[in-house]
């Protein structure tokens, strides 16, 4: 009977002892934040800690960085589990190359004042032959690059 009376007290005491040993959420949060700041790849990640559960948000470069982030935070003392809500930026839109017909017309406009240069357009590639002075070539290349070609192939062009 005596034991039964003392039992709740014992449980309470045990509970208090365990709570005392457990790192506080705020301390864990500070430790995680410190670790995140030390790595430039995770400097933009934010963390919230509730009952040892670390919830991560913010942006990381890619999937690999996100997985690595998970592991590194889990290894920090006091972190029971990780909820990784870090996002990965959307990949850039693919480069759009001008279709051959409008590109051919635009190349014709751009090369009109450079009669020593011959240009041919195929699958978005502007292939140049002939010869041109350096100063004019810079101007021409600037004009051609502005037309959204796939590439400007000047291997056959002689620069004087």
């Amino acid at each position: 009977m005596k034991v039964l009376k003392v039992l709740p007290l014992l449980i309470l005491a045990a509970g208090l002892v365990f709570t005392g040993c457990k790192p506080k959420d705020a301390d864990v949060k500070a430790a995680v934040e410190k670790a995140l700041k030390e790595n430039p790849a995770t400097a933009g990640v934010m963390v919230m800690v509730t009952d040892g559960v670390a919830t991560l948000s913010g942006e990381v470069a890619d999937d690999a960085a996100k997985t690595a982030l998970d592991a590194s935070v889990k290894a920090i003392k006091g972190v029971k589990s990780v909820v990784n809500n870090a996002t990965i930026p959307a990949p850039p839109a693919p480069v759009v190359v001008t279709a051959d017909d409008p590109l051919t017309a635009a190349v014709k406009d751009a090369t009109k004042d450079h009669p020593s240069v011959t240009a041919a357009v195929a699958d978005g590639v502007i292939k140049l032959t002939g010869s041109i002075e350096k100063a004019k070539w810079i101007k021409l290349k600037q004009a051609l690059d502005a037309l959204s070609p796939k590439k400007v192939d000047a291997a056959g062009l002689k620069i004087n």
């Binding site: 350096k134 400007v152 291997a155 620069i159």
Partner: peptide
Amino acid sequence: PNFLSGDLVLD
């Protein structure tokens, strides 16, 4: 030099 490689489109 002279933009001959054809590996950059600078717009």
